[in-house]
Design a protein around this nucleic acid. Structure first.
Lengths: 239, 239
DNA sequence: AATAAGTAGATTGTCGACATTGTACAAAGG
DNA sequence: CCTTTGTACAATGTCGACAATCTACTTATT
């Protein structure tokens, strides 16, 4: 039942960050939920100090929203923001692709090709978790090779939110077998990178991300009518 | 002598953030300097807790570099990074200009026109401080009207570094009366915004920032030969 | 004299407690 | 019955102290 297990690392606040992220990704913490320092501290059997640091760091990445003297809340997912976040991501990762293009070795490109191939396999088997994981790896790979520490950090931040979005739409993708629509989405990007065409790599990356955002948005508006946006439902928390 | 005066706000870590930023901008803290929590805490007559929070927040923005169990250091300014930072800034602010274009009212545009006019006056008088301040206000204005909280936060972060760069090159601008080169730099952007032309606004903003970065870089390489890059000069600090 | 081990000081990491602020519920008054 | 005030509780903000770690210097050994 306890989500936050006792910590093991010698850098406690890192453990807390991972624990909170896992809790959000797994759905244990939902958007809008109030994050209470003391509760996490008790569950992980540590003091509030590292918890505070973790919360501040996540707040800096907009993973959670922080209101002075009120507390931290899991960032609410306003569908109106999703378009903006994906637009931002498209610019950032587009730039990353541009910078990575001349820096990727043949080995790097082969590795990316493998990821792409495995994604094809996963989509045929309708294996959503594997597919999402590979997708993230592909984007991460480019980000890791742009050699721009700040850009990398920014992308890491928005990708975390992307991970949440993907998790939200996971069951939908699986249920409708829509993985095939995304199957070859990375191919144009990979081609451009292989050709060392910076302009093209940036543009294809941007298009890809904007399209992914649009599909996510489509899905969300489809499901909004059948579901209440306000969820003041029964909390199992009692303390 | 003491840089960090006793705090007055009811949110201590905010005070500390401002104090550290001021110390960096004013040159009291130089790139590479070790920031020691206890020292700031003592000078500001507060405990280390809010100092730690401030440091973590600034580290998240890459204003300062944080190494676990070693401490916080004012982010070193590697000229090789400057190009990257200005490129990143050009993308971010370009996007901000695009988003702001349809949202700016006539009043907003007039306000920006005024800023631009005042910059012209300042450049004629070779008043560098005023010029830089107005320049930052202009960019900030657009950033404030893009209605994208994350983008805004990211831009705030890189603009802080820009502020440092500008301060470094300040005396150079003044000495060589090169302000006139920048005088009308904002006009194309303003025109595009007035015409509500998103594409044009983004492009002009990007060009402007990339050019500004190039000029800064020129200046830095010019001065690198006459000046030692390592400055282990006499510190007034004694503790 | 040069290198290595050891030691003292300084700095960060963590902790538990108290102070301050915000919230929700209850009581009193209209 | 509704509104307002007061009070108790809960959560955050801040603090001082101790523990773990790193750094620089001293000392010992070859």
């Amino acid at each position: 039942m306890a989500v936050f297990k006792p910590a093991t690392s010698n850098l406690l606040h890192i453990e807390v960050i991972n624990a909170i992220i896992n809790a959000i990704v797994s759905g244990e913490l939902k958007p809008g939920d109030h994050i209470i320092e003391q509760h996490i501290a008790q569950e992980m059997q540590i003091s509030r100090a590292p918890v505070r640091e973790a919360i501040r760091e996540l707040a800096a990445q907009d993973i959670i929203q922080f209101i002075p003297r009120k507390g931290a809340y899991v960032a609410p997912l306003d569908p109106r923001n999703i378009e903006g976040i994906y637009l931002l991501r498209s610019y950032l990762e587009g730039l990353a692709a541009r910078l990575a293009a001349p820096r990727l070795t043949e080995t790097d490109l082969n590795e990316m090709y493998l990821l792409n191939y495995q994604m094809g396999e996963a989509s045929l088997k309708n294996n959503v978790d594997t597919f999402i994981n590979l997708d993230l790896q592909f984007h991460d790979f480019i980000c890791q090779h742009c050699e721009h520490s700040q850009l990398k950090k920014m992308i890491d931040g928005v990708q975390l939110q992307t991970k949440l979005f993907m998790n939200m739409s996971k069951w939908h993708l699986a249920a409708h077998s829509e993985l095939h629509r995304e199957m070859n989405a990375h191919e144009p990007i990979l081609e451009a990178l292989r050709a060392r065409n910076q302009e093209e790599a940036e543009m294809k990356m941007r298009e890809h991300i904007v399209m992914a955002g649009n599909r996510l948005l489509e899905y969300l508006v489809d499901n909004k009518s059948s579901k209440n946006s306000k969820k003041e439902d029964t909390e199992t928390v009692k303390n």
